[in-house]
Design a binder for these strands. Structure first.
Lengths: 187, 187
DNA sequence: GTGATTATTTATCATTTGTTAAAGGAATTC
DNA sequence: GAATTCCTTTAACAAATGATAAATAATCAC
């Protein structure tokens, strides 16, 4: 669990008994490439932390598979729109590279918010950061060409190389053909 | 202040003394069309609630004025990226239609988080909702044409009619010429 | 390894949006 | 109310991306 608490530490220093309470909600999951971590249609009740591997959140739009986001080693991933609204998620989580994951039981987590204000604060800070990242992503989508966005993604994580092109294309909001064309000119 | 507390009520029922503490951070502001509510370069320390009027957050990108978002009657507006990071904001808030505003002192607000967990929770819920809205906006930008996005914006608020075209265009991520063309075909 | 499946590239043409420039309207100032 | 400025539309052409189809390349199952 060290990796997870190191991650938490970056947001807020937790007291020992808060850490202990949190640790009780966590369980380890090992899951293989291409497997589904969370299926469509269920209300999201888990927040995941990736110790290793790659995951993506995706959904179907007019029959095509769209990747909403990727998550890499050392980051958390959750279907926020369901977690916060309590509505069933129209999105699924799939593993793209064999992963070691810590699953945090969100139902129990939210219950701890009353007893441990530190925990409520921790996750408030985590999601505030994610919110700001999302605002910046909008700027990226609206004011950069597909080529710029692709190069930017490459710059952020070279691990992207391991991900099938179609997922990267739908994440960037373009077709796979278009991305392939871009890569040809960039090389 | 009734409008503001009605707004809060939709997220969380507050106790009377919590409301009283909150009310002490609030002040009324009357501001005219085209005036600047918050300039560039300062760290954002205020959250605004619009009792009436229209406001927008904007910034300059390569010399052009870009509208990040609009706010209408009954909604809050804040430069979140500065509020949450404590860094100076590269964005400004401008009034587009004469407005009656309640200004919430965020510095004092954050201090109350320790004493009134209800207040921390209230704003956590408010911003969680805003976060989910932002995620949905990304979907809109990536998978709908400019025309669809324009019609969708019109559907959400007819007040948009009052806003100069250039602001709507930059909000939608297209040029003013392009938006004008779209409006010509839609009519 | 061979065949089958899946992923990626390439090519062609259509559509959308951007860029630039100019013209017509609306609003504001004096 | 005339002049000025700002806002919106129109037009012509360029660039980026989409759609479809076909050709390679890579991967997987047996």
């Amino acid at each position: 669990m060290t990796e997870l608490f190191d991650y938490f530490d970056k947001f807020l220093k937790l007291s020992d008994n808060t850490k202990k309470a949190l640790a009780e909600l966590c369980s380890n999951v090992t899951i293989k490439k291409n497997d589904t971590l969370q299926p469509f249609g269920h209300t999201c009740k888990t927040i995941y932390f990736l110790k290793s591997g790659i995951a993506r959140i995706y959904y179907y739009k007019d029959g095509t598979d769209i990747t909403e986001c990727f998550a890499f080693e050392g980051n958390i991933i959750a279907r926020v729109e369901s977690l916060f609204t309590g509505k069933p998620s129209q999105k699924a989580i799939q593993i793209l590279e064999n992963a070691e994951i810590i699953a945090i039981n969100a139902t129990q987590l939210f219950k701890l918010y009353d007893t441990y204000p530190q925990i409520e604060r921790l996750f408030r800070l985590i999601f505030e950061t994610a919110y700001v990242d999302t605002l910046n992503r909008i700027e990226g989508i609206q004011f950069h060409s597909a080529e710029e966005r692709y190069l930017d993604l490459l710059k952020r994580t070279e691990i992207v190389q391991k991900i099938p092109l179609k997922h990267i294309a739908s994440y960037l909001g373009i077709t796979q053909v278009s991305l392939s064309r871009i890569r040809a000119t960039v090389k």
